[in-house]
Amino acid sequence: MEILMSIIIGIIFTVSVYLFLSRSIIRVVLGTLLLSHGVHLLLITMSELQRGAPPLLNLGAESYTDPLPQALVLTAIVIAFGVTSLLLVMVYRTYKEHETDDLEELRGSADE
């Protein structure tokens, strides 16, 4: 299961890097979105995918799911939500001001 997840995460990372490198500004934002998903999956996977046992802390328990990564992922999701929404507003404003979504045109000239 972990191997499969690792491959999936790898694919997600690849796609998001591809989106990062594209010229359209909204694709770059989608890239950040996808990257954060990949990262969250990685965080869950890295702590071993345990199934069938509740995350209960009982010293006698033979098997339990580690609750910590879940809490971490939740926090990371909330943060990603905040960053993405801010980024969307910013991209929208950029588009309005510059009237283009092409990053090549948003490069900026050397002399200013």
């Binding site: 905040g82 929404s85 801010l86 969307l88 507003v89 929208y92 309005k96």
Partner: peptide, 13 residues
């Protein structure tokens, strides 16, 4: 508050 502020900021524009 945050979700609506952000969405409305774009919508009102």
């Amino acid at each position: 508050g945050a979700a609506l502020t952000i969405i409305l900021a774009i919508a009102e524009d």
